[in-house]
Amino acid sequence: MATPALATYHLMAWDELPDVPVYMEQLLELVNDALAPLGSTVTKTMVNSYVKQHFFSRPTGRRYTRNHVVAVLVVSILKLDFSLPVISQAILQIRDSRQIEPRYEQFRQAFEQALREHPLTIATNDPLTHAIQLAAQTVAAHLLTNQVLTDLAQA
Protein backbone atom coordinates (compact mmCIF):
# COMPACT_ATOMS: atom_id res chain seq x y z
CA MET A 1 0.00 0.00 0.00
CA ALA A 2 1.35 3.47 -0.89
CA THR A 3 2.33 5.82 1.86
CA PRO A 4 -0.36 8.41 2.69
CA ALA A 5 1.63 11.17 0.96
CA LEU A 6 1.92 9.12 -2.21
CA ALA A 7 -1.63 7.79 -2.08
CA THR A 8 -2.91 11.37 -2.26
CA TYR A 9 -0.15 12.75 -4.49
CA HIS A 10 -1.36 15.14 -7.16
CA LEU A 11 0.82 16.00 -10.13
CA MET A 12 -0.27 19.32 -11.55
CA ALA A 13 -2.70 19.02 -14.43
CA TRP A 14 -1.91 20.84 -17.68
CA ASP A 15 -4.37 23.63 -16.83
CA GLU A 16 -2.75 24.10 -13.41
CA LEU A 17 0.64 24.84 -14.96
CA PRO A 18 1.59 28.45 -15.69
CA ASP A 19 0.29 29.60 -19.06
CA VAL A 20 2.90 32.36 -19.27
CA PRO A 21 6.64 31.72 -19.52
CA VAL A 22 8.59 31.63 -16.24
CA TYR A 23 12.20 32.30 -15.30
CA MET A 24 14.56 29.56 -14.09
CA GLU A 25 13.99 30.36 -10.41
CA GLN A 26 10.23 30.13 -10.86
CA LEU A 27 10.55 26.89 -12.81
CA LEU A 28 12.71 25.36 -10.08
CA GLU A 29 10.32 26.44 -7.32
CA LEU A 30 7.31 25.08 -9.19
CA VAL A 31 8.93 21.76 -10.09
CA ASN A 32 10.58 21.21 -6.71
CA ASP A 33 7.32 21.90 -4.88
CA ALA A 34 5.62 19.32 -7.11
CA LEU A 35 8.40 16.75 -6.64
CA ALA A 36 8.94 17.19 -2.88
CA PRO A 37 6.52 14.39 -1.88
CA LEU A 38 8.47 12.05 -4.18
CA GLY A 39 11.78 12.90 -2.50
CA SER A 40 13.18 14.39 -5.69
CA THR A 41 14.65 17.81 -6.46
CA VAL A 42 15.85 19.58 -9.57
CA THR A 43 18.73 22.04 -9.85
CA LYS A 44 19.61 24.70 -12.39
CA THR A 45 22.50 22.50 -13.53
CA MET A 46 20.11 19.62 -14.19
CA VAL A 47 17.75 21.80 -16.24
CA ASN A 48 20.68 23.13 -18.28
CA SER A 49 21.84 19.55 -18.83
CA TYR A 50 18.38 18.54 -20.08
CA VAL A 51 18.57 21.38 -22.64
CA LYS A 52 22.04 20.24 -23.76
CA GLN A 53 20.76 16.66 -24.10
CA HIS A 54 17.84 17.94 -26.23
CA PHE A 55 15.09 16.78 -23.86
CA PHE A 56 13.51 20.10 -24.78
CA SER A 57 14.38 23.27 -26.67
CA ARG A 58 16.34 26.17 -25.28
CA PRO A 59 14.24 28.74 -23.43
CA THR A 60 13.37 31.90 -25.31
CA GLY A 61 14.69 34.98 -23.56
CA ARG A 62 15.63 32.90 -20.49
CA ARG A 63 11.95 32.07 -19.96
CA TYR A 64 10.50 28.58 -19.83
CA THR A 65 7.11 27.63 -21.25
CA ARG A 66 4.55 25.15 -19.98
CA ASN A 67 6.14 22.53 -22.26
CA HIS A 68 9.48 23.07 -20.51
CA VAL A 69 7.88 22.68 -17.08
CA VAL A 70 6.19 19.46 -18.20
CA ALA A 71 9.45 18.08 -19.61
CA VAL A 72 11.35 18.82 -16.38
CA LEU A 73 8.59 17.24 -14.29
CA VAL A 74 8.37 14.09 -16.39
CA VAL A 75 12.13 13.65 -16.75
CA SER A 76 12.57 14.11 -13.01
CA ILE A 77 9.94 11.50 -12.21
CA LEU A 78 11.23 9.03 -14.76
CA LYS A 79 14.80 9.48 -13.48
CA LEU A 80 13.70 7.82 -10.27
CA ASP A 81 13.79 4.48 -12.11
CA PHE A 82 15.05 4.91 -15.67
CA SER A 83 18.34 5.90 -17.27
CA LEU A 84 18.62 9.12 -19.25
CA PRO A 85 19.01 7.29 -22.60
CA VAL A 86 15.70 5.48 -21.98
CA ILE A 87 14.04 8.71 -20.90
CA SER A 88 15.39 10.41 -24.02
CA GLN A 89 13.64 7.80 -26.20
CA ALA A 90 10.34 8.49 -24.46
CA ILE A 91 10.69 12.27 -24.60
CA LEU A 92 11.60 12.20 -28.29
CA GLN A 93 8.55 10.06 -29.06
CA ILE A 94 6.29 12.51 -27.24
CA ARG A 95 7.94 15.56 -28.78
CA ASP A 96 7.74 14.08 -32.28
CA SER A 97 4.05 13.28 -31.79
CA ARG A 98 3.39 17.00 -31.21
CA GLN A 99 0.82 15.95 -28.61
CA ILE A 100 2.52 17.19 -25.48
CA GLU A 101 -0.62 18.19 -23.59
CA PRO A 102 -2.59 14.93 -24.05
CA ARG A 103 0.52 12.79 -23.52
CA TYR A 104 1.36 14.66 -20.32
CA GLU A 105 -2.20 14.18 -19.08
CA GLN A 106 -1.98 10.47 -19.86
CA PHE A 107 1.27 10.22 -17.90
CA ARG A 108 -0.08 12.29 -15.00
CA GLN A 109 -3.24 10.22 -14.68
CA ALA A 110 -1.43 6.90 -15.01
CA PHE A 111 1.19 7.94 -12.46
CA GLU A 112 -1.39 9.08 -9.93
CA GLN A 113 -3.43 5.91 -10.47
CA ALA A 114 -0.36 3.71 -10.05
CA LEU A 115 0.41 5.43 -6.75
CA ARG A 116 -3.15 4.84 -5.53
CA GLU A 117 -4.04 1.44 -6.94
CA HIS A 118 -1.08 -0.91 -7.08
CA PRO A 119 -2.28 -3.94 -9.04
CA LEU A 120 -0.76 -6.39 -6.59
CA THR A 121 -2.73 -9.57 -6.17
CA ILE A 122 -1.25 -10.65 -2.83
CA ALA A 123 -2.29 -8.49 0.11
CA THR A 124 -0.03 -8.60 3.14
CA ASN A 125 0.62 -6.75 6.35
CA ASP A 126 4.28 -7.75 6.27
CA PRO A 127 6.32 -4.69 5.19
CA LEU A 128 9.14 -6.78 3.73
CA THR A 129 6.77 -8.86 1.62
CA HIS A 130 5.10 -5.66 0.46
CA ALA A 131 8.50 -4.17 -0.45
CA ILE A 132 9.41 -7.31 -2.39
CA GLN A 133 6.10 -7.20 -4.26
CA LEU A 134 6.58 -3.54 -5.13
CA ALA A 135 10.17 -4.14 -6.23
CA ALA A 136 9.06 -6.98 -8.49
CA GLN A 137 6.26 -4.85 -9.92
CA THR A 138 8.65 -1.95 -10.54
CA VAL A 139 11.18 -4.10 -12.34
CA ALA A 140 8.46 -5.74 -14.44
CA ALA A 141 6.98 -2.39 -15.41
CA HIS A 142 10.46 -1.09 -16.16
CA LEU A 143 11.22 -4.02 -18.45
CA LEU A 144 7.89 -3.74 -20.24
CA THR A 145 8.36 -0.01 -20.74
CA ASN A 146 11.86 -0.52 -22.12
CA GLN A 147 10.49 -3.10 -24.54
CA VAL A 148 7.71 -0.81 -25.77
CA LEU A 149 10.16 2.07 -26.24
CA THR A 150 12.57 -0.19 -28.11
CA ASP A 151 9.75 -1.38 -30.34
CA LEU A 152 8.70 2.24 -31.01
CA ALA A 153 12.26 3.25 -31.88
CA GLN A 154 12.52 0.35 -34.36
CA ALA A 155 9.14 1.02 -35.96
Rank of each mutant, 00 (worst) to 15 (best):
E16M: 01
V42W: 00
G39T: 08
L28K: 06
Y23A: 14
L17E: 01
N32W: 11
M46N: 08
N32G: 01
N48F: 09
L27D: 09
L38V: 03
V31L: 03
G39P: 03
G39M: 11
S40W: 01
V51W: 05
G39Y: 10
A34N: 01
D15Y: 01
A34R: 05
M24G: 09
V47T: 07
L35S: 01
E16F: 01
M46V: 06
D15I: 08
T43M: 02
V20A: 13
L38E: 09
E16R: 07
L27T: 10
A34Y: 06
P21G: 08
E16V: 04
T43E: 06
Y50K: 07
P37N: 14
T43G: 10
V20H: 12
T45Y: 07
N32I: 12
P37I: 12
K44Q: 10
Y50F: 14
Y23W: 10
W14Q: 03
L38I: 08
K44F: 01
Y50P: 06
L17M: 08
P18W: 09
E29D: 11
P18M: 09
Q26S: 10
W14P: 03
Y23Q: 13
S40N: 00
V31E: 04
S40T: 11
L30Q: 08
V20I: 15
L17R: 06
V20P: 04
K44T: 14
L35N: 00
N48Q: 13
M24Q: 04
Q26T: 13
V51I: 15
V20R: 14
S49F: 13
M24F: 06
P18F: 01
V51Q: 10
V47H: 02
W14F: 14
L35Y: 01
Y50H: 02
E25N: 15
V47F: 01
E29P: 01
T43R: 00
T45M: 11
P18E: 07
L28I: 12
P37V: 13
D33R: 14
V31H: 00
W14L: 00
D33F: 06
E16D: 11
V42N: 00
W14T: 03
A36E: 13
D19K: 10
G39D: 08
S40Y: 09
S40G: 04
L35C: 06
V31T: 02
K44L: 02
E29F: 11
Y50A: 05
V51M: 05
L17Y: 01
Q26G: 10
T45F: 07
L27I: 12
N48L: 13
E25M: 01
